[in-house]
Design a protein around this nucleic acid. Structure first.
Length: 482
RNA sequence: GGUCCCGUCGUCUAGUGGUCCAGGACGUCUGGUUCUCAUCCAGAAAAUCAAGGGUUCGACUCCCUUCGGGAUCACCA
């Protein structure tokens, strides 16, 4: 069977990670099907909430994380247009079918009156059902008037791919608005028409739509449309509390994570596995792995909490993995993450630094704080030396002598390579008669004045002979014992 | 309030009647890797399987009830 899925966001702002997952699953399902198709549709029927530029933001997010759609904005396709505001005639046409069948009526009731009805039922602590107030005489519908569905409340059973066999009673079905007074359809009507005309086979959406299923089932029936497969997804929960993750909880835009140095591979891996797993004990999945292994019946029913720590860990895993696969390619992706001072240095220089520091990065933006001493001489900070755990037992003279020994020894080195440096450093360590923590620690701090750095011989080899010796002498001078 | 959904370590989860006095991962803690930080490796702590009743020789797994949590009841999606 050909699988056609869709992601259908409304352009009301950026896509936060809570929503992004419902873009990923339909993509995976479509791609694991040989002739599957993944459609992007923009649900822009709410003029009031429309945000300029939001569509571009959505497209950017999907492209970043690697969800390339087969049909939709930019790309086009056989089932367009892909903006609901451009499909107005289609909805009107379908609405007229419903009117002809006596299953839709123009509602003349003023909204103030409806508000009163609603207040009544609220006071009686009951769920509001408009059909209890259905007007007896309704005018012939014409544009500018709200059009309502005429419900046929009854027991309806259906199957959800995640939640299993479900039942909706008559009280879940009402005379919902199909076409608003502004002539545009509501989501409730539009998505059914669109999914039917676009040939969507699997509908993915958040579980907040579960209570509306009674209405949707009634509409499919009245429209004479076959029901697609339903895939309702549990909510992603905010880090604290039990509420679903939303922008109020500081749910960042997915692309904000890009600026923070999170790799799209890690984000995709993380979100896909938030509420889904393949039953094995694997943790790392590439897009291809996910496409091969994804299955609807392994989606969780309970909401999963959004845990940024696991994302960070996954990101570190991906940095190491991608480096192993193709270091240059990963390096090319670090462009925006270097400290400003690195701009004056050649790409080759930066690449050298990257090769010795990459396996310490959790996010690419760590480069900003972890590499500055490679590009500019650090300020000599004597306190850092004298308060160091391993060094504070030694006198200034002793420290200074060790540094001189190191500087003189290193100056003799013919070939300034990591390997030769390692040998030389070991030789000097022995000569100094100090513990590694003292000798290496002192040299390391003297050239970097950083709380941490790569292995000493790697650091010195990238730094180069000139800078290394100059920095060691700067500290010796600072001791005033030159 | 009505309706709908959910409930295994702090978190993500494995588990579809016996091999589970519950396994893995993140996080935390402790060690190891010639310096720091990170990686990597080894190990530890961490779940009366929401509770109570059934069914069964046997239940985390099936049934019922209760409790707890969430969603929804718009001319928003």
């Amino acid at each position: 069977m050909k699988v056609v899925t869709r992601f259908a966001p409304s352009p009301t702002g950026y896509i936060h990670i809570g929503n992004l997952r419902s873009a990923i699953y339909p993509y995976l399902l479509a791609k694991q099907n040989e002739e599957g198709s993944y459609i992007l549709r923009i649900e822009d029927t709410d003029q009031a909430r429309y945000v300029e530029g939001a569509t571009e933001l959505i497209e950017d997010t999907l492209q970043w994380i690697g969800l390339d759609w087969d049909e939709g904005p930019i790309k086009g396709g056989d089932h367009g247009p892909y903006f609901q505001t451009q499909r107005k005639e289609i909805y009107i046409e379908w609405a007229k079918k419903l009117i002809a069948k006596g299953r839709a009526y123009a509602d003349p009731t003023p909204s103030e009156q409806i508000a009163k009805y609603r207040e009544e039922t609220n006071k009686a602590k009951k769920a509001f059902l408009y059909r209890n107030y259905r007007p007896e005489n309704t005018p012939e519908w014409e544009p500018g008037m709200p059009l309502r569905f005429k419900a046929d409340p009854k027991d309806r059973d259906y199957h959800d791919e995640v939640f299993g066999d479900l039942h909706m009673g008559p009280e879940t079905q009402d005379d919902i608005i199909l076409i608003k007074a502004d002539g545009l359809p509501t989501y409730n009507f539009a998505h059914i028409v669109d999914d039917a005309t676009m040939g969507i086979t699997h509908i993915f959406r958040g579980q907040e739509y579960l209570p509306s299923m009674g209405n949707y089932l009634a509409l499919y029936e009245a429209l004479g449309v076959d029901t697609p497969k339903f895939v309702h997804l549990p909510h992603i929960l905010a880090p604290a509390g039990n509420k679903k993750l939303g922008k109020r909880d500081g749910a960042k835009s997915a692309v904000d994570y890009r600026a923070d140095g999170i790799l799209p591979e890690a984000m995709l891996n993380f979100l896909a596995c938030l509420g889904w797993n393949d039953g094995t004990e694997d943790e790392i999945y590439s897009k291809q792995d996910l496409i091969e292994k994804f299955s609807l019946d392994r989606i969780q029913r309970a909401g999963a909490r959004y845990d940024e720590q696991k994302l960070i860990w996954l990101n570190g895993q991906w940095i190491r993995r991608l480096f192993t696969e193709d270091p240059k390619a990963l390096f090319a992706r670090t462009k925006d993450f270097w400290p400003e001072i690195a701009a004056k240095v050649s790409e080759e220089e930066k690449y050298k630094v990257f090769c010795i520091i990459y396996d310490r990065l959790k996010t690419l933006s760590d480069l900003r704080t972890m590499t500055t001493y490679f590009f500019e001489d650090p300020n000599v900070d004597m306190d850092m030396l004298t308060t160091n755990k391993a060094l504070k037992k030694l006198s200034e003279k002793e420290l200074c002598d060790i540094l001189k020994l190191a500087a003189d020894g290193l100056a003799e080195l013919n070939e300034w390579s990591a390997e030769m440096l390692q040998n030389k450093l070991n030789e000097l360590l022995e000569k100094s008669g100090q513990k590694p923590a003292v000798f290496f620690g002192l040299v390391r701090l003297s050239v970097s004045f950083a709380p941490f750095s790569p292995a000493l011989h790697d650091t010195l080899s990238v730094l180069g002979r000139e800078k290394t010796l100059a920095r060691l002498h700067a500290v010796i001078t600072a001791f005033g014992r030159d």
